[in-house]
Design a protein around this nucleic acid. Structure first.
Length: 322
DNA sequence: TGTAGACCTAA
DNA sequence: TAGGTCTAC
C-alpha cells in the first residue's frame, strides 16, 4: 500500500459531508441500534455513540440515523488507486458506486418491506405483541449473505453472544480477506467457503477457541463445497421453506434452530420461526402454548412455530424478531 | 417418538 | 450456565 496516511473511522457526516450519503428511512421503519445489536448479525460494532461500523458485501461501512434519514459512509480498500482503476474518470465511477452502495444497503435492510403496516397487522392480531412493539419499533429482519449467516449461526449453539462475537471476529481475522485498517484496527471480510475447506481448518478453528464447533464449521464447509456449492446454497432462496430447511439440516452442526435462523435471516423465508430455549419459555408462559413435554422435542419445536405462524401469519419470523 | 448426556470454553 | 446438536437408549 502507498496510502500516505492511515484511514480513520468516521462517526458523523458533519466532519466530511462529501464522504457520506443518505437514504430516506423513518425510525418506525428501522432502528439501527436494535437491529444491529440483537444477535441477527455479529459483525457490527457501535464505534461511537449512534454510529455503527461493520463489514457488509466485502466493504467496511459506518451507519448512522438522524431523524428520517439513514446515513452511511463506505471506506476504500487500502490498496485502492482510484484514478488508475477507474480509467481516469473518477466522477463517473463515484456515481455508479453510489447507486451500487445504495442498492446494497436497501437490500441488506430490506427497506422495500414496509414495517409499520406489518406492526399494525401483528398488533391487531396479538395484544401481547402490541405491548412489546411500543418499546421496540423499527425492528426488521436483515437479508444477510447465506454463507456468513450459516457459519455464524453454527457457532451459536450452546453459546452466548459475547463469546460468539469474539469467535467470529477471530474467524474473519484468520480466514477472511483483509479489507482495510481504521484507526489502526484491521477489518476482514467474512471468509469464503473455500477458505474454510482446508485440511487444517478444524485444527486452526480449535486453536481459535471454537471448541467442538470447529468440526461443525469445517465439516459443513466441506459438505457444501462437495455438494451444492456456494451458488447452490444461495439458490435455496428460490426454493420453498421446507426444502431449504431440509437441505440445511443435513449439514453437521445444523439442527432445527440454526436452520431456521439461516432460513429467516439469509434465505428469504419470512415464515421461519427459530425457537430457542427463550422463545420456548415465552411460548409456554406468555402464550400458554400447551405442549406436553418438559423439553423442546422436535415435535414441540414444530408446534411452537406453527402456533406463531397461525398467530402472526406468513411473516411470523419477522414478528418474532421484535 | 421422547429422554439423557456429552460436547469446547469462559464466565 | 450459555440463544444447540448429536448420539445412544
Amino acid at each position: 500500500s502507498r496510502s500516505p496516511t492511515p484511514m480513520k473511522l468516521r462517526d458523523a457526516p458533519s466532519a466530511c459531508p462529501s464522504l457520506w450519503r443518505c437514504l430516506p428511512c423513518p425510525p418506525a421503519e428501522l432502528r439501527l441500534d436494535l437491529v444491529l445489536s440483537s444477535g441477527q448479525s455479529f459483525r457490527w460494532w457501535e464505534s461511537s455513540p449512534g454510529a455503527w461500523t461493520g463489514v457488509l458485501g466485502g466493504r467496511v461501512w459506518t451507519l448512522r440515523q438522524d431523524g428520517d434519514r439513514l446515513w452511511y459512509t463506505v471506506y476504500g480498500e487500502e490498496d485502492e488507486h482510484e484514478e488508475e482503476q477507474q480509467g481516469g474518470c473518477p466522477a463517473k465511477a463515484a456515481k455508479l458506486d453510489a447507486a451500487e452502495t445504495d442498492r446494497i444497503l436497501r437490500d441488506y435492510f430490506q427497506l422495500d418491506v414496509g414495517l409499520s403496516a406489518l406492526y399494525r397487522a401483528w398488533g391487531a392480531a396479538d395484544p401481547l405483541f402490541r405491548k412489546v412493539a411500543n418499546d421496540f419499533p423499527g425492528v426488521r429482519v436483515l437479508r444477510q449473505d447465506p454463507v456468513e449467516c450459516l457459519f455464524s449461526f453454527i457457532c451459536t449453539s450452546n453459546n452466548h453472544i459475547s463469546r460468539i462475537t469474539a469467535m467470529i471476529e477471530r474467524l474473519c481475522q484468520a480466514f477472511g480477506r483483509r479489507l482495510c485498517c481504521l484507526d489502526s484496527r484491521p477489518f476482514h471480510a467474512f471468509p469464503s467457503l473455500s477458505a474454510l475447506t482446508g485440511a487444517d481448518a478444524e485444527a486452526r478453528l480449535r486453536a481459535l477457541g471454537f471448541g467442538y464447533r470447529a468440526k461443525f464449521v469445517s465439516g459443513s464447509a466441506r459438505a457444501i463445497a462437495e455438494g451444492l456449492g456456494t451458488e447452490g446454497l444461495c439458490q435455496l432462496r428460490t426454493e420453498p421453506y421446507a426444502e431449504a430447511r431440509r437441505v440445511l439440516c443435513a449439514l453437521p452442526g445444523v439442527g432445527a434452530k440454526v436452520a431456521d435462523c439461516v432460513c429467516l435471516l439469509s434465505l428469504d423465508k419470512a415464515e421461519a420461526v427459530p425457537v430457542d430455549t427463550h422463545v420456548w419459555h415465552i411460548a409456554q408462559q406468555r402464550y400458554g402454548v400447551a405442549l406436553g413435554g418438559k423439553s423442546l422435542t422436535p415435535r414441540a419445536y414444530q408446534e411452537i412455530g406453527d402456533f406463531f405462524r397461525g398467530l402472526w401469519g406468513p411473516r411470523a419470523g419477522w414478528a418474532q424478531a421484535v
